[in-house]
């Protein structure tokens, strides 16, 4: 095979990859997730709750070395998690996120069945195992 034909083949592959991505973006799961993200961005209360939850989780992770099961931070985390679970905009966000991830796994599974190898696993940056 010449270099020219190899370049042409890759252009063809990239075009197929773009069509594949466009079709993924049009699935109901990805569209719903995008809409749910927009809804969160438009809701100050939802954003504030998410930020507080993230900050508190980081704080607790940094203090993970000692037992903090009775700490005020741990209690506040439980309260925040309960608030997030009750918030309709955030409920929609987390539900749509889960559905989208399931859908992407399913698409990758179908790709794996055709290719004979796992596309997503090979696409991940190399790790330092072994």
């Amino acid at each position: 095979m010449s270099n020219d034909s190899a370049i042409a083949d890759r252009t063809h592959i990239k075009s197929a990859a773009r069509s594949f991505a466009a079709a993924i973006a049009e699935t109901a799961a990805v569209r719903e997730y995008s809409a749910a993200v927009d809804a969160v961005r438009a809701d100050d209360n939802a954003l504030q709750l998410l930020q507080q939850l993230q900050q508190l989780r980081q704080t607790l992770q940094m203090n993970a070395g000692w037992d903090n099961s009775d700490s005020p931070e741990r209690q506040r985390l439980e309260e925040l998690e309960a608030e997030v679970a009750q918030h309709p905009v955030l409920q929609r966000f987390f539900a749509s996120q889960k559905t989208m991830i399931d859908e992407l796994h399913s698409i990758n599974d179908r790709l794996r069945q055709r290719l004979g190898f796992d596309f997503a696993s090979l696409a991940r940056p190399a790790c330092n195992c072994g």
């Binding site: 991505a21 466009a22 993924i24 973006a25 992407l104 997503a120 090979l122 991940r124």
Partner: peptide, 23 residues
């Protein structure tokens, strides 16, 4: 090759397809 394709796909989706869709 797969990294290049994943980059193409992820740039359209706005998130890393390989990272989300993998095991």
């Amino acid at each position: 090759l797969i990294h290049d394709c994943n980059h193409e796909i992820s740039s359209i989706l706005g998130f890393d397809f390989g990272a989300v869709a993998g095991p």
